Amino acid sequence: MDILVIGGTRYFGIHMVNDLLKQGHNVTIATRGNAKDSFGDKVSRIILERTNPESMKMALADKKYDIIIDKIAYCSNDIKYVLDVADCDKYIYMSSTSVYEPKHWNTIEDDFNALDKKLVWCSRMDFPYEEIKRQAECALWQAYKNVNAIAVRYPFAIGKDDYTKRLLFYIEHTIKENPMNIDNVDCQMSYIRSDEAGKFISFLVDKEYTGPLNGSSNGTISIREILDYVELKTGKKAMISKDGEAAPYNNEPEYSINTDRAKNLGFEFTNLKDWIFELTDYYINLINSNL
């Protein structure tokens, strides 16, 4: 298949593109052209500015793709700028579990229905992240009802290649015994491994499914469990204090993500606790090597 990937040059987008190439698809990457990638001549490339409708029109008009995977649409205008001009048989949008109001235990796709919410055409800075992602889905499901689309909803993606360094924050602060302000240390939460996040999207390109779709590793874990493991491995003590630096996962509730729909399509996610402590060991060794 001919597949256009908008974004895809970093983090789990790299895993996704590599898996698409492994499957034998013809992949075109659309970016601003600022970031180098490692795909060489395995992919085609086009240059566009994602937030500029004229740039999108110039780049995508008169082109036909079997699949468009949009990793960097954040708001309703972003959806509009691509679907007003793009010609594709399927559109896969990278959404987020942040659309749920709020996430909770056993969160299922039907817990957020974008058809029940008023659509507001907005730009990326008009609302907080959670709301612009909701509005992107409102645009997708209300204004483009005839598009064969999937909205993939992930919790936090983590891995050795995680540029956000959010999980690393907790481990580094513990090892260096720097105080942290953590407001949800005992909340069970879901995550997905970065390589799996990429592979799941590539898995979906030939699946007969339309609608929102959760993706997540099986099981949950609390920050407390991770800190306890770091303390055990290092002999250090996690310093939790209201006067400490605010932790990156603050304000997240206790929740889990139900992935039954994905499993029914044939995708088996890994068990979170089969790999997260190995990742924690990697971060521990990384930090200790730099001390």
Rank of each mutant, 00 (worst) to 15 (best):
T28G: 12
I72N: 05
I240M: 11
A262R: 01
R193T: 00
Y170Q: 08
T97C: 11
D111N: 09
I69L: 07
I257D: 00
V27A: 02
K263N: 12
I72C: 05
G40W: 09
M16H: 02
V82N: 00
I175F: 10
K64D: 15
D19I: 05
Q142E: 06
D70R: 02
T51R: 03
S217T: 10
L232Y: 12
F39G: 01
D183T: 10
I175M: 08
K263V: 14
T164R: 03
G13P: 05
D84K: 02
S190W: 05
E177M: 12
S190T: 15
A30H: 00
K117S: 03
M180T: 10
Y129I: 04
D126V: 14
D116T: 15
A114W: 11
G215D: 01
M180Y: 07
I201L: 13
R261I: 10
D260T: 15
E196I: 15
T164M: 05
A136C: 06
A139N: 08
S76P: 01
G198K: 03
G215I: 01
S44W: 06
D206A: 06
K118S: 14
D126Q: 15
N26Q: 14
N178T: 14
H15A: 15
S194C: 08
Y91S: 01
L140F: 09
A35M: 13
P102K: 11
T97Y: 00
S55R: 00
D87H: 08
D186P: 03
Y91F: 15
G7C: 05
V147H: 02
F156K: 01
N181M: 10
K145S: 10
R10E: 06
D161Q: 11
I6V: 15
A149V: 08
G215Q: 03
T107A: 15
F203P: 00
R261V: 10
T220F: 04
Y282Q: 13
Y144K: 13
A139E: 10
F277L: 11
D260K: 15
D62T: 07
I132M: 06
A246G: 06
